[in-house]
Amino acid sequence: MEFRPTLVAFLCNWCSYTGADLAGTSRLHYAPNIRIIRIMCSGRIEPTFVLKAFQQGADGVLICGCHPGDCHYQEGNYKCLRRYKLIQKYTQQMGIEKERLRLEWISASEGKQFAELVNDMTKTLLQVGPSKVKGTLEVEHLKK
């Protein structure tokens, strides 16, 4: 069967989620393989969320926050950026290709950029192929 990459996206409520909504109101079309999860701030992203997404079968994970300086909570996106660098290192050591995890800034007015980003990442994932870690990860402490 043809490979259809699954993309899980974490979008902050104030900028990126609103930007994704704007793509909808502007009727911009993009690949339907993306599944969006809303969080209040990109600073809320925990490594566990990313790992959980890969474990559940995501071929790629996308994190979007406000542009630097525009964070609704002043600096959550900076904290996200620092955490992202660490997660990126960690997932690579686990054998997850670098291209599968991406952090981008999308503002509330960038519906077009969001649609382009989704298509672009989908294209990248098609080239990289299916994720090899599907179903092989268990995140123990969260079972509670």
Partner: peptide, 21 residues
């Protein structure tokens, strides 16, 4: 309202059709 368990449960559900194992 954005607890770990809520978000992780959401992640578990969000790929139900596209990927099941």
């Amino acid at each position: 309202h954005f607890t770990d368990s809520q978000i992780l449960a959401e992640i578990e559900g969000i790929m139900s059709l596209s990927y099941k194992y």
